[in-house]
Computed example of a mutant assay.
Amino acid sequence: MGKWLQSSEHLVFEVLERVARITLNRPDRRNALSWEMLTELRAALLEADDLRSVSVIVLEGAGPDFCAGYDMKSAYARYASEGDAALDYRSGSGSFDDDVWKLERFQELLRTAFVVHKPVIAKVHGHCVAGGTDLALYCDMVIAADDARIGFPATRAMGSPPNHMWIYNVGPQWAKRLLLTGDMVSGVDAARIGLVVASAPAARLEEEVATLANRLATVDPELLATQKRIVNLALELAGAGTLPRLAAEMDARAHLSRAKKEFDADVAELGFKAAVRRRDEPFGDGVARPSW
Rank of each mutant, 00 (worst) to 15 (best):
82 E>Y: 14
254 A>H: 10
6 Q>F: 00
210 A>M: 15
203 A>M: 00
237 L>I: 05
5 L>Y: 05
95 S>M: 05
71 D>I: 02
139 C>W: 00
142 V>I: 15
289 R>D: 06
207 E>L: 12
59 L>R: 13
184 M>C: 11
181 T>D: 10
102 K>I: 05
207 E>V: 13
97 D>Y: 05
154 A>C: 05
231 V>G: 01
199 S>N: 01
173 Q>N: 04
185 V>M: 05
69 G>T: 01
286 G>M: 09
32 A>R: 14
157 A>H: 11
174 W>A: 02
263 F>C: 12
292 W>I: 11
48 A>C: 10
128 C>P: 06
248 A>S: 13
225 A>E: 01
58 V>G: 13
146 D>P: 02
229 R>P: 00
242 T>R: 14
79 Y>C: 07
50 D>T: 13
176 K>E: 10
220 D>L: 09
244 P>F: 04
224 L>K: 08
107 Q>G: 13
170 V>M: 02
199 S>D: 01
51 L>M: 14
157 A>N: 13
169 N>R: 13
62 A>Y: 03
3 K>W: 06
164 H>N: 12
177 R>D: 03
55 S>Y: 04
156 R>H: 11
94 G>M: 10
196 V>D: 06
121 I>K: 12
124 V>Y: 06
160 S>C: 09
281 E>Y: 04
240 A>T: 03
41 L>M: 01
75 A>C: 01
60 E>M: 11
224 L>W: 03
59 L>E: 09
255 H>E: 14
160 S>N: 11
69 G>M: 01
68 A>P: 00
78 R>L: 12
101 W>Y: 12
273 K>G: 14
171 G>T: 02
240 A>Q: 04
288 A>L: 15
193 I>K: 07
109 L>S: 13
139 C>E: 01
286 G>Y: 02
218 T>Y: 00
283 F>W: 15
52 R>P: 09
258 R>L: 11
55 S>L: 06
5 L>E: 07
34 S>I: 08
192 R>I: 05
241 G>V: 11
2 G>V: 06
22 I>L: 10
186 S>I: 08
41 L>C: 01
212 L>Y: 13
185 V>Y: 04
287 V>F: 08
84 D>W: 04
225 A>N: 01
64 P>A: 06
252 A>M: 08
146 D>A: 12
